[in-house]
């Protein structure tokens, strides 16, 4: 099967999942207790006109199926209306917050790879030696540390006590020295556990690959150990790491929800938490939809990359 047809088949599987993701997100306000209008306005008392306006905007007088399709049409054109709580345009709010989250998530992901990959290789190659045991415990500690706790401690030590980093984010644009410097602590907070996960995954998959006959065969051919590890073993060991990139994205999003709040970083995660606390459900709905679609597309991309990396998958 050619790569093109594989991608086509994979796309075909993605469509029902996207439908499911949008349907589930759509039903969110309907699953909330009480009337949908009450849910949308966050259970506040509103005037009759406002209620009528919301009924019209959300097409609540139509059958549920039509409501979904109309909502979907609006969602595709990024028309999420206004927040009944803040009165601001939902799409614009998310559009303003998204770059900040992408910057933080991207930085944390790079940090995770930069630490996780070399550490994974070193610990896998030195199996049974002290380096492996130290690495294993460090990774477990990284996974076990609650990111909100780590964030608070970093904030306390480096911002409050040492005064190295600002406590509040600068007003400067996203791409500026002040912002980059501010991002150091949140990036470490968010990236530590992700790095630990990458390291553990790479370590175990490399250990498994190192036992494979082709490794012995490569050594029997007289290839230098560097080539054996970096060209042959790593290429295969990397495949499982690639497959969890989608899960990693979900993991980073979860982390961002917490970490952005600690560092007052104006991203989507903080917006989500704030919206929950003030019952701004249309905003929550839009954020959840963006996250869900992003992860579905990331998984699609991962599978395509996997097929390119692993020739066996194209049967």
């Amino acid at each position: 099967m050619s790569l093109g047809r594989y991608v086509g088949r994979r796309l075909a599987i993605t469509v029902p999942v996207l439908v499911g993701v949008t349907a589930l997100t759509f039903s969110f306000v309907h699953l909330l207790p009480g009337d949908a209008v009450d849910a949308i306005v966050g259970f506040r008392d509103v005037s009759a006109e406002t209620e009528a306006a919301i009924r019209a905007e959300y097409h609540l007088d139509q059958p549920v199926w039509d409501q979904y399709l109309l909502w979907l049409r609006d969602a595709i054109t990024l028309e999420f209306g206004e927040s009944p709580v803040t009165g601001r345009d939902v799409s614009a709010t998310i559009g303003r917050r998204l770059p900040a989250t992408l910057a933080l998530g991207g930085a944390a992901w790079l940090l995770a790879l930069a630490i996780g990959i070399p550490a994974g290789i070193v610990t896998a190659v030195s199996a049974g030696k002290p380096a492996d045991e130290v690495g294993r415990l460090a990774a477990l500690a990284g996974i076990a540390t609650p990111n909100f706790w780590l964030g608070l401690i970093l904030l306390f030590v480096f911002s409050v006590r040492l005064g190295w980093f600002r406590v509040l984010p600068p007003d400067a644009p996203l791409v500026s020295l002040a912002t980059v410097k501010f991002l150091v602590l949140p990036t470490i907070t968010l990236g530590t556990a992700a790095a630990a996960l990458v390291m553990r995954l790479l370590r175990s998959s490399m250990r498994r690959e190192l036992d494979a006959p082709y490794v012995t065969a490569a050594r029997a051919r007289g290839l230098p150990e560097r080539t054996v590890i970096l060209k042959h073993v790593l290429r295969n060991a990397f495949l499982p790491v690639v497959t969890v990139a989608g899960l990693q994205l979900a993991f980073l999003v979860d982390g961002a929800v917490v970490v952005e709040g600690i560092f007052s970083w104006p991203g989507m995660g903080r917006l989500l938490v704030r919206s929950i606390l003030r019952r701004d459900y249309p905003v929550i709905q839009a954020i959840v939809l963006v996250i869900g679609i992003a992860i579905v597309l990331a998984n699609l991309l991962v599978d395509i990359i996997y097929a390119i990396l692993d020739p066996r998958i194209r049967y």
């Binding site: 929800v257 929950i276 959840v288």
Partner: peptide, 26 residues
Amino acid sequence: MRVVDVLYAFPFLVLAIAIVPILEPV
């Protein structure tokens, strides 16, 4: 498995956050 796939599209914590207000008044 399609239900599983759909739920997998939402991060653990985000999904839990969205479910809490649905469950709260039960």
